[in-house]
Amino acid sequence: MILPEIASTYAFPPGGLPPQDTDPAGSAIFTQAYAVLPANTQRDIVTSLLPGWDGARAWILARPLSGFAETFAQLAVELAPGGGSATPEPDANGQAAILVASGALRLTIAGARHDLKAGHFAYVPAGTAWEICNTSDAPACFHWVRKRFEPIGAGDPLAPVVLHEADAPRNAMPGCEGVWETQRFLDPADIRYDFHVNIVSFAPGGRIPFAETHVMEHGLYVLQGTARYLLNTDWVEVGPGDFMWLRAFCPQACIATGTEPFRYLLYKDVNRHPALSLR
């Protein structure tokens, strides 16, 4: 069985505010091993304004927390028409991975201009000047993963990467007959990268067939479809716009449900020795 070719969608926080007659009981979870921020919690009143940005608001979904996930921050950013930033990254060692969810964006990296639409991915190396703006008359939305770069010595610097998801190879996982695929935007064999951001896809009924338990921290934003997801000892129902945040060694697995592919944007830290002391 091969994953079907259907229109890809890229979920994003819904914003707004539920009506007053809504039952406030929800499915948000925060534990010592993982957190789940359902799409229904990503509302206007939890957004942040960012220094150095105009016409922008952000849902900060993950940030380093002592004793939890410590390597990355993840944001969903909405730009009003004309909004953006000429100085988006405040940390001189900060890297960026961006996936456009909707709208039209102009991304300039080291003077090179790129016009982006839904499905475009971009990687900006640490120390590289970049700018981003909304060039349309409607809001433009993107997912933004930030990580402080951990260099491994002298060598060729990393180059920016810009490509559309449609041009990223669909790599079938071994022994699963194509029902589980990963699109890797950064070369997995290049040890210079200290994190990866991928799109992982499952056909309905596809699954991670064991409880993965590993050192990598994860941020998982569900772009499309539904699944039952194992987080530590709990099976959780997730769907478009839900965000899962896993600390190191949290067991995880999933079974895709519904009638369309289950797809999520995945962050993980890779390719570095573990520190031998607490930072």
Rank of each mutant, 00 (worst) to 15 (best):
I6E: 11
T9W: 03
A11V: 11
P13I: 04
G15R: 09
S27P: 09
T31H: 15
A35K: 08
L37M: 03
L37P: 00
A39M: 03
A39G: 10
T41F: 07
T41G: 05
D44W: 09
T47M: 11
L49W: 02
W53V: 02
D54S: 15
A56H: 04
P64L: 10
P64Q: 06
L65I: 13
L79F: 10
G82W: 08
A86P: 00
A101M: 06
A104Y: 12
A104K: 14
R106K: 14
H120S: 12
H120F: 08
Y123D: 07
T128D: 00
A129V: 09
A140I: 03
A140H: 06
W144V: 09
R148D: 14
D156C: 10
L158V: 10
V161Y: 01
V162H: 01
V162D: 01
V179P: 01
V179F: 08
T182V: 13
T182R: 07
T182P: 01
D187R: 00
D194K: 12
F195T: 06
V197Q: 10
I199H: 03
R207N: 11
A211S: 13
V215D: 11
L220C: 05
Y221W: 05
V222Y: 00
N232M: 13
T233L: 13
E237Q: 13
V238E: 01
P240Q: 03
G241Q: 02
W245I: 05
C250R: 02
A253C: 05
I255D: 08
I255N: 03
E260L: 03
P261F: 00
F262W: 06
L265T: 04
D269H: 13
A275W: 13
L276E: 08
